[in-house]
Design a protein around this nucleic acid. Sequence first.
DNA 1: TTTTGATGCATAAAAAAATTATGTATATTT
DNA 2: AAATATACATAATTTTTTTATGCATCAAAA
Lengths: 113, 113
Amino acid sequence: MKKQQLYKGSLNTIIMKLLEQHGKMYGYEITQKVKEITQGEMNITEGALYPALHKMEADGFLDVEMDRVDGRIRKYYKLTESGVKETVSRMEELENFVRNMQNIVNPNLKLGY
Amino acid sequence: MKKQQLYKGSLNTIIMKLLEQHGKMYGYEITQKVKEITQGEMNITEGALYPALHKMEADGFLDVEMDRVDGRIRKYYKLTESGVKETVSRMEELENFVRNMQNIVNPNLKLGY
DNA sequence: TTTTGATGCATAAAAAAATTATGTATATTT
DNA sequence: AAATATACATAATTTTTTTATGCATCAAAA
């Protein structure tokens, strides 16, 4: 009965930020890392994850490298130069979003003007 | 060339919170209030706003009251009892989202455990 | 030993929520 | 007189997600 807990539009930001921190990761690893960090509150579904990874690759933000580990295939993704820039941009967007939402929900805290 | 600055899924939360604070508001007023609070960074488009208001009304979260002011029609919306509860729930969701995003983007800050 | 659960990728159909583009109409400002 | 601001609305499209599958390997449990 749980809500999705995941605001649409935040998935790419999450993926990129994790890749920035860890260098390279594969899809399943990303889902587990998010589950771990959020204590199970956020769950990245495969139906959202894989198309997102493919799109970011097509957009030139990610590079892929295939590996075979224990008989299973892993596709490691890492940020391209363009992806690094995009990550910075997305982080600014997230910070703006949070700041704006705080100003909306808490009208007592005024901005520094 | 600006980005939308509005995470999908946050619109209903914004509307409900503003209604909670102001008692009753009409659509156009909501767009202006958001623009004012965010210094123009967030812009609620009518194409998103009106369907959202209609849906929340259909879901029983909002009540409507029509007014004619200066020859123009205004539809004032206010939260129902059910809408007040939903607002609380959505605020919790937003807080969880922000906390989870902070834990993801800033792995240095550990949770209190 | 067989079946379940975890690992690992993927896509298709549908739903949700937005953008973009219109449309109507009145009031005010230039 | 024309442009801008106010005020509502909807339709077509796009974006992003959920839900539901599908395939395949490996480890653990029954």
